[in-house]
């Protein structure tokens, strides 16, 4: 079947199978930031924004995305830059395989709750697994990112 959607601001028309996921569709469309780390909706690596809300692209049926707006890290490069730098400054990206999904969810957190406490950061991002960092470096990076945007940095 054919699905028409908006991908990173551009209209896209794609052929999908009935049981394709949004993840499969995005990879087929050449989106490389989106990763898959499990088959059980457990890891958060495939997080993208659907109509501005972070979802697990592996669990969203591709046909359900018809007429909707999908945003991946490719589409949020300038908004994500400062957060990326904060992670890099801590060395907290490590292998980087979970980074795209984490950043997509953390940007949503920053939009929703820019004054989030550490506990709120952890709760919001609990579905983003990382095996390298032990999370504490990511926590420091996100805390610094939130304080830097609070002081007016990183706004496009």
């Amino acid at each position: 079947m054919t699905v028409e959607l908006t991908l990173n601001g551009r209209p896209v028309r794609a052929q999908v199978e009935a049981d394709d996921s949004l993840y499969t569709l995005l990879r087929a469309l050449g989106v490389r930031s989106v990763k898959c780390g499990c088959e059980t909706s457990s890891c958060g690596l495939c997080t993208v924004h659907l109509d501005g809300q972070p979802v697990l692209s592996c669990s969203v049926p591709a046909p359900r995305c018809a007429g909707r707006a999908v945003t991946t890290l490719e589409g949020l490069q300038s908004e994500a830059r400062l957060l990326g730098e904060c992670l890099a400054d801590e060395g907290a990206e490590q292998c980087g395989f979970c980074a795209s999904g984490l950043i997509m969810n953390a940007l949503a957190l920053a939009r929703e709750n820019p004054s989030a406490t550490d506990e709120e950061i952890d709760a919001y991002l609990a579905g983003n697994l990382c095996r390298c960092s032990g999370y504490v470096g990511q926590r420091r990076a996100i805390r610094r990112y939130l304080s830097r945007i609070a002081s007016g940095e990183g706004r496009a």
Partner: peptide, 9 residues
């Protein structure tokens, strides 16, 4: 680092 955090393939 910056390649990884910007989602490059």
């Amino acid at each position: 680092a910056m390649a990884l955090v910007s989602g490059q393939g």
